[in-house]
Simulated assay, not measured.
Amino acid sequence: MTDAEPAGADEGVAGKRILVVEDEMIIAMLIEDILTDMGATVVGPAARVARAMDLLGTEDVDAALLDVNLAGETTTAVAEELRRRGIPFAFATGYGVSGLPAGFSGQPFLQKPFQERDLSQVMAQVLA
Results as ranks from 00 to 15, higher is better:
residue 58 T to G: 06
residue 58 T to N: 09
residue 58 T to L: 07
residue 59 E to F: 05
residue 59 E to P: 02
residue 59 E to G: 06
residue 59 E to N: 11
residue 60 D to K: 13
residue 60 D to V: 13
residue 60 D to G: 14
residue 61 V to L: 05
residue 61 V to P: 00
residue 61 V to D: 01
residue 61 V to Q: 01
residue 61 V to W: 02
residue 62 D to G: 06
residue 63 A to W: 00
residue 63 A to P: 05
residue 63 A to Y: 01
residue 64 A to S: 06
residue 64 A to W: 07
residue 64 A to K: 00
residue 64 A to G: 04
residue 64 A to I: 12
residue 65 L to R: 02
residue 66 L to C: 15
residue 68 V to C: 02
residue 68 V to G: 01
residue 68 V to I: 13
residue 69 N to L: 08
residue 69 N to T: 07
residue 69 N to C: 02
residue 70 L to F: 09
residue 70 L to T: 09
residue 71 A to R: 15
residue 71 A to W: 01
residue 71 A to T: 14
residue 72 G to D: 12
residue 72 G to V: 13
residue 72 G to T: 12
residue 72 G to A: 13
residue 73 E to I: 12
residue 75 T to M: 08
residue 75 T to D: 08
residue 76 T to L: 13
residue 76 T to P: 00
residue 76 T to D: 09
residue 76 T to M: 07
residue 77 A to S: 12
residue 77 A to W: 00
residue 78 V to T: 14
residue 78 V to I: 15
residue 80 E to G: 01
residue 80 E to A: 07
residue 81 E to S: 12
residue 81 E to G: 04
residue 82 L to K: 14
residue 83 R to M: 05
residue 84 R to G: 15
residue 85 R to L: 10
residue 85 R to F: 05
residue 85 R to A: 08
residue 86 G to W: 03
residue 86 G to E: 10
residue 86 G to P: 09
residue 87 I to V: 15
residue 87 I to R: 00
residue 89 F to I: 07
residue 89 F to A: 06
residue 89 F to T: 06
residue 90 A to M: 06
residue 90 A to Q: 05
residue 90 A to P: 01
residue 91 F to C: 11
residue 91 F to I: 12
residue 91 F to T: 11
residue 92 A to P: 02
residue 92 A to T: 14
residue 92 A to N: 10
residue 93 T to S: 14
residue 93 T to H: 07
residue 93 T to L: 10
residue 94 G to M: 07
residue 94 G to R: 04
